[in-house]
Simulated assay, not measured.
Amino acid sequence: MKLVIPGTLPTMNEIINISKRSKYAYRDLKEYYDNVVAWHAKAQHIAPVERANFIITWVCPDRLHNKDNIAAGIKFIFDGLQKAGILSNDGWKEIADFSHRFEVDKTNPRIEIEILEAS
């Protein structure tokens, strides 16, 4: 299965900066992006899995951010998949493994998430 999320997710630096704004800023940011991921998962009819490997391809609009900074968005991905009922949890039992890939597409930034059932 492949889930595609158009656009980008907040980078680690953006998350840190937003967290400094107010007591509830990170909570609101996280809820918003968890919901974005959940909505796309439901709209794309992603089936629930008990345990899976994930290949996450971050298709960025440019090379301005470091890869580790970009990959911080994985938190929104796994929590959004839980919210959508795709994953029951995001622990060791449910997430067998994950890997990151990075590409650039100035006109169509997105996150492509391959979900491969694991035993």
Rank of each mutant, 00 (worst) to 15 (best):
E94K: 03
K2P: 00
V37R: 01
L81S: 08
G91I: 05
A84P: 07
N89C: 08
N66M: 10
G91W: 01
L29Q: 13
N17D: 15
N13A: 12
E50F: 05
Q44W: 06
Y33Q: 03
T107Y: 06
A96C: 08
Y32N: 09
W39S: 09
N53G: 10
L9G: 04
D97I: 00
Y26E: 12
L116I: 15
L81D: 08
D79E: 15
K20G: 01
N35R: 10
K67E: 15
A47M: 10
H40Y: 12
M1N: 06
E103I: 01
M1P: 06
Y24T: 14
G80S: 09
H45E: 12
P6E: 13
A47H: 09
G85W: 11
V59T: 11
N13P: 05
F76N: 08
K93N: 09
K2V: 06
V4Q: 10
P10H: 07
I15M: 13
D90K: 13
A96N: 15
T57H: 06
S99K: 14
W39T: 05
C60A: 15
I95D: 05
L116R: 13
A84G: 11
D79T: 12
A71C: 13
K93P: 00
A84Y: 09
R21K: 15
T8W: 00
S88E: 14
K75F: 08
I115C: 07
N53Y: 05
I111K: 08
K67T: 11
E117I: 02
E112V: 08
D79N: 15
Q82R: 15
R21E: 14
W58P: 01
K30H: 15
F98N: 11
P48W: 09
F98A: 03
K67P: 01
R21Q: 14
K20V: 11
I15G: 01
V4I: 15
A52I: 06
F102K: 04
I15W: 07
N13F: 01
I74R: 14
